[in-house]
């Protein structure tokens, strides 16, 4: 990797580092679809937070196609796929003592989700 020079710092930082990909991958879910998070417990890197595993939510927004970090971190390729904002009611995640008017939105890749 080339050494970053002081003169290039600003341009490099302003350029950004998007993990978005142009690959024409079809989404597995439509906005409004009900999903459940897979019970994933990989030994390596994942971005599926433990607290929403096996929880049910609704696809709120499709962010587009991104590098899949679980395989990318393991040098197994980018595995391009859609990332969605998934809405989980607080009570679905934490139980009945959570407020009824609170929700958590988590950004999740296709490979983390099943239809519910």
């Amino acid at each position: 990797m080339p050494v970053l020079k002081a003169v290039d710092v600003e341009a490099t930082l302003r350029k950004g580092d998007s993990a978005r990909l142009a690959d024409p991958v079809a989404p597995r879910f439509e906005v409004g679809a009900r999903v459940v998070v897979r019970n994933l417990n990989p030994p390596g890197h994942t971005r599926a937070p433990r607290y929403i595993r096996l929880k049910r939510g609704v696809i709120e927004r499709d962010h587009g196609v991104f590098i899949f970090p679980d395989t990318n971190a393991a040098d197994q390729g980018a595995k391009p796929q859609h990332v969605y904002s998934v809405r989980f009611d607080a009570r679905e995640v934490w139980g009945d003592d959570a407020p009824s008017n609170a929700a958590i939105y988590v950004d999740l890749w296709d490979d983390y989700l099943d239809p519910a």
């Binding site: 904002s85 988590v106 950004d107």
Partner: peptide, 11 residues
């Protein structure tokens, strides 16, 4: 309504 955005991905 409180909405908490957990930004664990790329957005």
């Amino acid at each position: 309504e409180i909405r908490v955005w957990d930004s664990t991905a790329e957005v």
